[in-house]
């Protein structure tokens, strides 16, 4: 409580105290309405009989039971699990390896880093287009190798329902692994040289040095990489559209493409909303604890 004896310009004072919050409030209001309000709205729709347009007749859990009985959703979930885990593991392994190799006082390090990282600047649509034709059996890799004389060479993953999902992994890893490399490289550069010297004096080999001292200290980088990659995997949409269009058939359908097609082309808005809700839940399960811990550390 402030005791006021000389508050001459009460209006001025009020404005002065409220000004920072006033400046913040448009952004906050926008986010409250367009993020959290909309989340609630979509969540509500997932319990209604909405079809081509939102409708407000409540149907309980019907959309969710329907959702989990639809074959396409099952495929989408399986795909996101396969794609997500391969994407995360390969990106991390490749990123870590390249970071360690690049950390050996490499000449032209800056140049190499630039090459590894540029795919991150591209749109997934561009990446998808490039890989779509490169992997196309008719004109791409297969045709090229055959034209070189290996007539029986076959590489038709992108046309093969069982293998198409792995082409998504190839393109996605190509796009993101350089970025993961940069994250690990930053982590490596943050490690105290004295510790390494001490371990070397203790007689650790290079291999032991990395396995026992360096890599364990990269835990925060692993955490960040995991969170970023997992969240990108769940949200993946553009790349599938550009690379396979979800095909062949529905072989490379992911939750994001499923949601879009059920909501806007198949006019099953209720089911679409239910699938979006599940996507949100899984991302929240990863992001909320992460943001929480990052903000708490600050205090």
């Amino acid at each position: 409580m402030t005791i006021t004896t000389t508050r001459h310009r009460a209006g001025d004072d009020w404005l002065r105290n409220a000004l920072p919050k006033l400046v913040l409030s448009p952004s906050f209001a926008m986010v409250l309405i367009f993020v959290y309000g909309f989340i609630l709205f979509t969540f509500y729709l997932s319990f209604t009989d909405s079809r081509i347009l939102p409708s407000y007749g409540l149907v309980g859990w019907e959309n969710y039971t329907k959702l989990f009985s639809v074959r396409a959703w099952g495929i989408a979930v399986d795909n996101v699990l396969i794609f997500g885990s391969l994407y995360i593991v390969i990106c991390c392994a490749l990123g870590l390896m390249l970071a360690i190799l690049l950390d050996q006082q490499i000449r032209a390090e800056g140049f190499i880093r630039t090459i590894y990282l540029y795919p991150m600047a591209l749109s997934f649509i561009v990446t998808g287009t490039a890989w779509k034709w490169f992997l196309d059996p008719g004109i791409g890799l297969q045709a090229v190798v055959r034209s070189w004389g290996w007539e029986s060479f076959t590489f038709e993953w992108i046309k093969d329902s069982d293998m198409a999902i792995y082409t998504i992994v190839i393109a996605a890893v190509w796009q993101t692994s350089g970025f993961v490399m940069a994250m690990f490289l930053a982590g490596l550069r943050g490690i105290d040289n004295e510790v390494l010297k001490a371990a070397q004096i203790d007689g650790a080999s290079n291999w032991a040095l990395y396995r026992r001292i360096v890599i364990p200290q990269l835990r925060p980088a692993f955490m960040s990489a995991f969170v970023v990659l997992a969240h990108m995997a769940i949200k993946s949409y553009d790349l599938i559209i550009a690379l396979t269009g979800g095909g062949p058939g529905t072989a490379t359908e992911l939750p994001a493409t499923f949601m879009y097609s059920y909501t806007f082309t198949r006019n099953q808005m209720g089911i679409g909303a239910a699938s979006a809700t599940i996507m949100l839940m899984s991302i929240a399960a990863i992001m909320v604890p992460y943001i929480w811990s990052e903000l708490r550390e600050k205090k």
């Binding site: 409580m1 402030t2 005791i3 006021t4 004896t5 000389t6 508050r7 004072d13 002065r16």
Partner: peptide
């Protein structure tokens, strides 16, 4: 920082609430 309670004055003028 605000004064929670009490008073600070300079040249006889109370400073509470003064910028």
């Amino acid at each position: 920082e605000d004064v929670t309670s009490g008073d600070i004055s300079i040249k006889g003028r109370s400073m509470n609430g003064v910028r």
